[in-house]
Simulated scan of single mutants.
Amino acid sequence: MRIEKEVYGEEAMERLGGSIALVLKNGGVVYLEGDLGMGKTTLVRGVLRGLGYQGPVKSPTYTLVEPYELSGLEVNHFDLYRVADAEELEYMGIRDYFTEGSLCLIEWADMGRGVLPEADWVISLGLIRQGRHVSLEAQTEKGYAAFHALQKVITS
């Protein structure tokens, strides 16, 4: 099950993130795929704004994770770009971040293969003309439920 979108500009990417936030209020695991500069952190900023966060949002490239506590929802934004071996994640206690009600948004999830839980959604970003091609794909039952809700939000 997949949604394909074309997104043009940073504001449009943030709006898409805000729409995604509407259906992820119960948490989940989202893998964000795409090369450097494709807008993964911008999309995360939109999700956080959609959940009510107004502070700065930066890529956790050096810290590996930026946690946010929002209205009872714990949101963890991971950037695993600099991880050399997935076992490093075990040392930081990564499994503790993945609770039933948390939302975990993970950039460069392939660097944590074998340690990370299965993704409810995979969001892939790629370059097209002057914008980005965004593909959203549900992977689990929890992901499918949120996915159906997102289809209604995006098409209304």
Rank of each mutant, 00 (worst) to 15 (best):
L43I: 08
E137T: 10
G50A: 13
Y31H: 13
A146F: 01
G114A: 11
G28R: 01
L136P: 02
R45S: 11
E66K: 02
R2L: 15
A109M: 14
N76T: 02
Y144K: 13
W121M: 12
L105N: 08
A12C: 09
T63Y: 08
G126P: 00
E87S: 07
G131H: 08
W108L: 14
Y31K: 09
E141V: 13
L32R: 03
N76F: 14
V153W: 04
T155W: 14
L80G: 02
G37D: 08
K58T: 15
G50M: 05
T42S: 03
Y53N: 09
T61R: 07
G39Q: 05
S59V: 12
T42D: 03
G27I: 12
A146Q: 10
H148C: 05
E87G: 00
P117Q: 01
V29Q: 00
V44T: 15
S19D: 13
D79C: 05
F78P: 04
D120P: 09
I3M: 07
K58C: 09
K142V: 05
R129Y: 09
T41L: 06
G17S: 02
G39P: 09
W121E: 04
V30Q: 00
L36H: 04
E137K: 10
E100Q: 11
V47F: 04
V65F: 07
Y62M: 07
Y97H: 04
T140I: 10
G131C: 06
Y91F: 15
G101M: 08
L125E: 06
E11C: 02
E90K: 11
H77S: 04
L22P: 01
L116Y: 01
L89I: 06
I106K: 01
E90M: 11
Y97Q: 02
E100F: 13
L103I: 08
A145N: 00
A119H: 12
G131S: 12
V83A: 09
G37F: 10
K40A: 11
I3W: 04
I106R: 00
G131R: 06
T155H: 14
G55Q: 11
A86Y: 10
V7W: 00
Q130A: 12
V57T: 00
L48Y: 05
T41G: 06
A84I: 11
W121A: 03
Q54P: 00
D79F: 03
P56D: 12
A84W: 05
G93S: 02
R113K: 15
Y144C: 03
R15E: 15
L24D: 06
D110W: 07
L103F: 04
S59Y: 09
E87V: 07
L73E: 09
P67A: 05
I3E: 04
I123E: 12
R129L: 13
A149D: 13
R49D: 08
N26L: 13
Q151T: 07
V75S: 08
A86G: 06
A86D: 08
M1F: 03
V57P: 00
K58F: 15
T42P: 02
L64T: 12
G46S: 09
V57L: 05
S135V: 15
G37H: 11
D85C: 00
L89K: 01
Y91Q: 13
A138W: 09
R45P: 05
E14K: 15
E6D: 05
I106Q: 03
S19Y: 14
G55E: 14
Y144S: 07
V30F: 06
E74H: 10
I128S: 03
G46K: 03
A109P: 14
G72I: 08
L136Q: 01
